[in-house]
Nucleic acid binder design. Structure first.
Lengths: 208, 208
DNA sequence: GCTCATTCGCGTACGTGTACGCATGTCGTC
DNA sequence: GACGACATGCGTACACGTACGCGAATGAGC
């Protein structure tokens, strides 16, 4: 019976992404495997490749869907400092809680739908707060770098056991600067650095 | 002839690290392979594991050696702002130019000899500039996060071809905030945010 | 020199992502 | 229907990192 082939159309890009997303949301990213997905879908491993360019391509898609659900701040956007702080913190939490997201952000610039929507929204806010387009872009770049950088460091520290010998409690020392509180304080330094320009814009608005 | 075994002591941790380091310095990190190293050393792949815990362990060691050669600023450390800026930029360049380094910094906190030496040196400078130990640690954390984050983004953008369709020249937009110039400007925002505390310390020094 | 514990090189084997190509299913055109 | 173009499922095969355990070389204590 060589004809033990599954009916036509059993698998589709959408099905693959759904199953993968379910696993990642359940925190099973580390054990996400092409062979595993295939067996859950009841097809042969190589069949997935008709619908997904590669495992990384698949993960990109999964992460886009997860990001779409969680990036948007609840804070009103007329308080730009608060809005930006919340948006940054949401991305940080996302990176720390989802290893898959980390993987994606580290492999290439993220230009998925949700990531672009998020960038557009933040640029919008920054444009209203800062004197010109160029300042807004610089600010965005700085904030984004800091956020991703912090997320990476915090995530790499989580689930990491310090080497057997820990002279000077070095692990504690490192731990001390990758707490969420630390994130907020560092971000404040950044935003403080940006604020003078925002004040300038506010002043300019009064004297047109 | 089952006795086609290589003489005793042909391979050592040092040899393995040397060969691997040579390859990485030659920009051949992507094709760095246990089997490849073994064949260059003339031994069987599994022999390496007597001297190296894992491939990642090996890469940690290689990256430590490369970092040791390049982290130290040339600027005199009595101009703390300039010293810190150069130190940060050196780490950024290292991360961008050496994918292996990126790999290590993303996998776990880096506590190798060179990394600790670098941290100690920077903490020294920050302690002299800022009012107390706590401020220094916060500053270090913020600077480090920003630097690693920027390095990650810049590296991921390098060697990346934007998707076939590039609406609104989005690639350019992204490119605009991952230039070395941008790094410096963002860092300045951060240091500006820190400076008030430094000024406070300077004032305090005059009125003991 | 003998014995025994330790170190070292290696053969085998497993699970991973995925390139390649065959065979089968589906659909558009006559 | 018949036939050709294409889409899809899958079997085979490769290179990768590395767990496990065997046998040989080395060194320590007598």
């Amino acid at each position: 019976m060589p004809g033990s082939r599954v009916p036509w159309g059993t698998v589709s890009r959408e099905r693959v992404i759904q199953v993968a997303t379910k696993r990642v949301r359940a925190g099973r990213y580390e054990e996400l495997t092409i062979r595993g997905l295939a067996s859950e879908l009841g097809v042969s491993p190589m069949s997935l490749y008709r619908h997904v360019r590669s495992k990384d391509d698949l993960i990109d898609e999964v992460v886009d869907r997860l990001l779409a659900r969680c990036w948007r701040p609840r804070t009103a956007s007329d308080d730009w400092l608060a809005w930006v702080a919340e948006a940054a913190d949401r991305l940080r939490r996302f990176l720390v809680s989802q290893p898959a997201a980390l993987h994606v952000y580290l492999r290439h610039p993220v230009v998925s739908r949700a990531a672009i929507a998020r960038m557009d929204a933040m640029m919008e806010v920054l444009r209203r707060a800062l004197p010109d387009e160029d300042s807004a872009r610089r600010a965005y770049g700085a904030i984004h770098s800091y956020t991703v950088g912090f997320g990476v460091l915090q995530a790499s520290r989580a689930g990491w056991a310090p080497p057997e010998t820990d002279p000077d409690g070095l692990a504690q020392q490192l731990a001390a600067y990758t707490t969420p509180r630390q994130f907020g304080e560092g971000l404040r330094y950044l935003l403080d650095g940006l604020s003078p320009q925002a004040l300038f814009k506010a002043a300019e608005a009064r004297v047109p």
